[in-house]
Design a protein around this nucleic acid. Structure first.
Lengths: 144, 144
DNA sequence: GTGAACAATGTTATAACATAACATAAATAA
DNA sequence: TTATTTATGTTATGTTATAACATTGTTCAC
């Protein structure tokens, strides 16, 4: 959270109340959260925030690399490596619902190579592997 | 299309009228199509097909590797390499809306390596790179 | 062939995810 | 301080996807 504040301060970006609350909600969950889950959380007490507000906050947080969107789940997760903007690669476990952000140095390199072979200029890189994490696999989580 | 028929025959899967029509629609478009776009196409003449029917057909076609889903676009595209099941990696051009399926031998290897380093057992592999294809980049398609 | 079992489709309704458009308020800069 | 930009409020609607249950069609054993 300090990191987020520092990062926003450095960039002259405003980490407002609602953005802070959304970020907090996302960080607090180890599992990816849907936008409406986040909304429900914020509205749990004396609620009256609209979906738009959450989506706007998420847009802001994604712009600043504090949150990632998992396209395959329509869900959001706090960035584990909130430094400068980076490609995010995820391992998504069907068993425990966790999504682990992986450092993909080798992977990133392989992607770059493939892209340049095609002359393709990348802007957004989505890599999401779904399956079972080591733990759930060992536990014998069933096929479906 | 022959390929699709042959493949289904071989597996004892039924390539019914509606499935055939959906597959045809998807193949006919070089760009990814939304489910409701497909639906609109089918219903263009004397239409009365419901969304469910399209989604069910798409599920079938995906199961058999004839169609892929692009998670980042909520859209579907015909498989360019309709052989056995394979991981699909896409280059999605923002300029011409094309989605190119790439042979990712090297990439696949890199992914596998990373996964085994994590002890992660993969089931679905989503790799979608968005950006500009060589042609659109040369044309100078603007940033947004 | 007939009937049981399974596979596919029809139908209706609704859930889940996301944005458009315009009004208001708060912060910043000139 | 008033002009400008940035953020939020508000209402409505658009888009994508699935649940649940009824009906029809196909296959296979007998």
């Amino acid at each position: 959270m300090r990191t987020a504040e520092a990062l926003c301060a450095k960039r002259g970006a405003r980490l407002t109340e609602i953005r802070r609350r959304v970020l907090k909600a996302v960080w607090a969950s180890h599992a990816p959260m849907g936008a409406y889950d986040i909304l429900a959380g914020l509205n749990a007490g004396t609620g009256k925030i609209a979906p738009m507000a959450v989506y706007r906050a998420l847009d802001f947080l994604m712009e600043h690399g504090l949150v990632h969107r998992l396209a395959s789940l329509n869900a959001f997760i706090g960035c584990a490596l909130a430094t400068e903007n980076h490609a995010a690669h995820f391992l998504i476990c069907r068993g425990c619902k966790s999504a682990t952000e992986m450092e993909g140095a080798a992977l990133t390199r392989a992607v770059k190579k493939t892209l340049s072979a095609h002359g393709f200029v990348p802007e957004t890189e989505i890599i999401e592997i779904q399956g079972l994490c080591a733990h759930c696999h060992k536990e014998g989580v069933p096929k479906t």
